[in-house]
């Protein structure tokens, strides 16, 4: 049976989203199935009207231009493109926290189509319980 990974994405900052997408790409390449649970800021980052304008960094914000420049020079795909690449390689399911959905507007249509469904904490804990790898970003 395929190995499973369960990830809580609480943060919505670009640097953390990028770090997470790299790991999910690595997992998907190894045929590990991934379940991502979006909480507060993680959910916000998946809003259609936020994706393009999100320039938030979690740390060392003075170095943001340098990091941005390096990523452009390396032709690194955006966190969202990388996530899509991972989804092409293996099952990567994206679940949105029902409370966060209510906080950010209430309609699933306001969020990227890449989001699979809206679930509660109990269901995600059930996924995490069965997973081989878990982490919180």
């Amino acid at each position: 049976m395929a190995k499973k990974m369960a990830v809580v994405l609480f943060s919505g900052s670009l640097d953390k989203l990028t770090g997470l997408s790299v790991l999910i790409g690595g997992a998907a390449a190894q045929d590990i199935e991934v379940d991502i649970f979006l909480q507060l800021w993680g959910t916000y980052a998946f809003r259609k009207d936020v994706v393009e304008k999100n320039t938030n960094f979690s740390e060392f914000s003075d170095l943001k231009p340098q990091v941005h420049e390096a990523l452009v020079e390396l032709k690194a795909p955006s966190w969202l493109d990388l996530l899509k690449q991972a989804r092409d390689a293996a099952p990567v399911r994206i679940h949105m926290c029902s409370l966060a959905l209510q906080i950010w507007g209430g309609k699933k249509e306001d969020f990227l189509d890449i989001v699979d469904d809206v679930i509660g904490a109990g269901e995600f804990i059930d996924m995490a319980e069965k997973a081989d790898v878990t982490f919180f970003v």
């Binding site: 690595g26 998907a28 390449a29 991972a86 390689a89």
Partner: peptide
């Protein structure tokens, strides 16, 4: 070449 981690790994899998 020119892609960064995990690009080559995903390319290999594909």
């Amino acid at each position: 070449r020119g892609t960064s981690c995990p690009g080559p790994l995903l390319a290999a899998k594909k």
